[in-house]
Each structure stands twice: as C-alpha cells, then as structure tokens.
Write a protein that binds this DNA or RNA. Structure first.
Lengths: 264, 264
DNA sequence: GCGTAAATGTTCTTATTTGTGTGAATACAC
DNA sequence: GTGTATTCACACAAATAAGAACATTTACGC
C-alpha cells in the first residue's frame, strides 16, 4: 500500500490520530496504512496499551474514553466534542463508502466530521480527491492521494473554500463520485444549515457523475434551513441505522439505493 | 537528490526545518537530501540532541515537543504547535511586520511557522489575506480578516497549495504587500529548500507591489538548495538579530531596509 | 604551495526492530 | 453446545540502524 514503511513513532501517531477521530482502529488497517506486518502493529498496540493510550481489544483498539461509558459519563459528560458524537456510526459509514471508490478515480469530499473520518480511511488509495474543506485536505496532504482545492474565500465553521470564485474553479474538474454530507434528510431531499455551503454542494453535484450521501441516522426526517438537492439524482445513501418506512419508500421511489453500514 | 554536499550548518537548518513542519525526520532522508553519509547525519542528530533541539529515536529524530506525550496526553490532548523553536524571535518579527499592514490592504502570507505566528497576530485587522498555506488560512478563518486561497494541488511538508493551477489563479489577485518566508539569505538573495515552493513565491513576488522578508537570524548566510529571488526588489527584511556587516552592506547596496525587531 | 585540525567516510560489530511460521486462543454463526 | 474463520502470541530469522575505531578528505591557516 505504501511504498515507504512508517517508523515506530509515526505509526504511534497514526494510531492515536485515527483513534481520536474515529474512536476505533483495526490491526489490519494500521498494518496496511503503515506498511508493516500485523505482528508489528500488535506490538505497537500492546505498547500503547501499557501506557493507557488505548484499550486493546480483539482485532484492534479503542479510544480510552470508550472505556466504559456508564461509569464516566456521569462524572465527565462533555468530554466528547461534537465531532466525536456517534464515532462508531460515522466510521462504519465511511468504511462502507470506501467500497464506492475505485483506483484512479477523481472523487469529491464534502465538509464535516464524517468526511474527515472518510478522508482518514481513504488514506493511501490511488485516487485523486477534490475538497473544499481545509481539515479534509490537510489530513490527506501527506498521503498517497493527490489532493486538490478550489481557490476562493475561506469561511464557515469548519474552515473551507466557498463563494463564487470557488464555484467557478470547480467547473475545471470532472468528478467521478461526490460524497455529500448534510444536516438533514427528508422526503424533500437533503438539507444543510448554511446557505453559503449549499452553493458549493450544488456545484459539486453538477460536476459529478455519481452522487452518494453519507448521513448518520440522527439526521433522518430533519428538514433544516437550506435545501441542497432533491433525493432524485442521488445514487445512494449510506447510513448507520434504518431510516424508517416512510423515508425508505421515498428513496425507493426516487431510485436511491439505501446502504446501512454496520460497525466492524 | 543533491549534487553538492551541504555543510554542517546547512544540514542543521534542514533538519530543524523539516522537524518544525513534520515533527519527524529520518536519518536516511537527511543523508539523501544533504548528500552526506548516514554516519554524519547521526553525528548531527546526536549533536542537536545534546542541545535539546530534538529527540533522538531509532532511525531518526522527533521534534522536542513530541517528547513522550504519555503523561500529558490525557490532560493536553491536542498539541499541534510544533513550531516553538525561537518562538520569541518569531513573535518579535511578526509583531514588527504588523506595522507594515494598513487597513483595507490585500496582503499575501507565505508558508512557515513565522507566517503562522504572523497570521495569529494579524487576527482582527481589517485586511484581506491571500495565502497558499492551509495552516495559515485555518488560523485566520474565524477572524475578522477575509482569507483567500488559490486553487490547486495540495503538497509539501506544510500542507499548501502549489503547482501550475495555483500560479495561474494567483494572477487574479492584486497584492499590496507580500511577506516572504525562506530558509536562507545571502548576498545572492533568498533561498528555500523546496524548488516547488519557490515557483509560488516567485509568482507572489510578481503580483505584489511591496515585498518584505521575515527572516530569523539563524538563516543569514545560508544559501540552500533553491534560489527564490535576489535581494534587489525587496523593500525590507525584518529579523531578530544583526545579520553581520557583510550582508548588511549588500542590503544597503540593494536598497533593502533592515529592521531588527526586539522582543517585547 | 604545505601542514594541521576538523569534518566526513569506511568497515566491522553489536543492538534494535521487524517479519515469518507455528499452534493456541478468541469471536461468531448456527 | 460444535465448527469455522480470525486473531493472537511465541520463538526464531531477517532486516535495519547504531556505534566504535580507524582511514580519508576537506577547509583554512600560514
């Protein structure tokens, strides 16, 4: 996977970084991404476990905060940032989304924590990525993937490129698959909080052959501020729980595949 | 990589520079990039380690800020700041550079830790900023300043936009003042380690009415790999210590103002 | 030019890290 | 429960990095 083998400390950083964003790592994932044997990864994990940096489990490791939620939740309720909400779900979704990525393709990644998780997993695949999100771009910067950013003004809660310049620049790219993130999904389609960002999302939809939405279950049935696009035209929704009969029917009617990812 | 062998101090600079941006160097990487034997690099690293400029590990070295996080990780989880080398000097330089910024202007910021410090201070000034550096852009994203990024491929030790697309997009901007960062200054002008980045720097120089270099004193007299620009054409150099009579004379001959910032 | 000291390179040995094959342990479906 | 597929851990082999001692080159004074 990697031409270069990562050194001990780099692997440690990789492991802890993934743990921080996704809450979970597998031995095989680290092995693949760092170019070492699973045995070596196990030794790394065991080493980190003795220092309480992670919880060792069969097949991988967990973030120490996942120790046992029941005990600590009451004492320290707000330790998990917004990005850490439903980590397992986001991770499962991102993992599933990987199946829609083929070598050599140009894919577009939207904003949001799910996309950052996705970017993490995308790691060293042989693809080109375009994104407006600075965190997503930064995560991929040192990986094997080629990363492109449109030009334009930086704005938003999550630093990202937006505005008319960005939209114009996006027209220079031909995208195979766009992975959309959003804040709500209903029968009317996909929604977002920020009207500015929807312009970018709309542009990316226009430029892409395939469109796939990555949506965790908490967003079903929520129609928030700004409308991005109708369900029709999308190829698939990847989520982590059943969206309910009603929305399911609408998806089927609009020919949108429903994929429910289960935690590994 | 290099036909010429770098001297001890140049290697030292190279090592610290890479450490500053990536937090990690390998012996073999330095050996290749500086054209010396691995044995020599090890001696360099050991020497730097005794001065606490880095942490020696098997196969390479780490930035001192990565000094075993095991104890502090739980308390201080996200320490992204690796650019703490000569922080006082950088801060003084950045503070002084602020005097060259007027409200309403369009300024361009280069890459590097000095620029990140500068960006931090720039904070709530009423200016527009263009930069290729993702960390610089991220720092300014939530401030009052308007931040613009050219489009293009993300590459480099410090994630940044580069390549022909970026250079083309830069032509759309009219810049009042460009603040240059570099790895070396000599009578021949400004130098950098990476040939790719110099293209961007050259383009920014062309697009800017005023050019000011922010250079900490350790970089004087170092002519490293890639030439960026001659001294002539630059309006000022801001630094934190006296550059020595020789360089001082050259600056004067080329009509470049010398400003020495003192720590507050 | 020459001589000298410092810096760098070579060679060999030792230490550390990583990989491989084996059987045992674990999880999971039925 | 049983069967099956992973995953794990151990011992040893291989690869890689480090260190020591000595040879060589380079820089720089005169």
């Amino acid at each position: 996977m990697l031409e270069k083998r990562l050194h001990a400390k780099q692997r440690e950083d990789l492991i802890l970084d993934i743990l921080k964003t996704t809450g979970f790592v597998t031995v095989s994932e680290i092995a693949k991404r760092s170019g070492v044997t699973e045995m070596t990864v196990r030794r790394d994990l065991d080493q980190l476990a003795t220092r309480d940096r992670l919880i060792r489990i069969h097949g991988g490791a967990l973030h120490p905060d996942n120790r046992d939620s029941s005990e600590f939740a009451a004492i320290e309720p707000a330790v998990n940032e917004r990005a850490n909400i439903n980590l397992a779900g986001k991770r499962a979704i991102a993992q599933r989304a990987l199946q829609h990525v083929a070598a050599g393709e140009m894919i577009a990644l939207d904003l949001g924590s799910t996309m950052q998780t996705f970017a993490q997993l995308l790691g060293d695949l042989d693809v080109r990525v375009i994104t407006c999100s600075l965190p997503v771009a930064s995560r991929l910067a040192h990986s094997r993937t080629e990363v492109y950013l449109p030009g334009g003004r930086i704005a938003g809660l999550e630093p990202s490129v937006s505005g008319p310049i960005a939209i114009e620049h996006l027209n220079e790219y031909w995208i195979d698959t766009f992975f959309l993130g959003c804040s709500g999904v209903s029968a009317e389609g996909f929604f977002d909080y920020s009207p500015e960002d929807t312009q970018i999302k709309k542009a990316l939809i226009r430029r892409s052959k395939r469109k796939i939405a990555l949506v965790d279950a908490s967003k079903f049935g929520r129609a928030s501020v700004a409308h991005i696009a109708p369900l029709s035209g999308f190829d698939a929704i990847i989520t982590d729980a059943n969206p309910g009969k009603d929305l399911e029917a609408h998806l089927k009617a609009n020919n949108v595949a429903l994929e429910i990812a289960v935690g590994s």
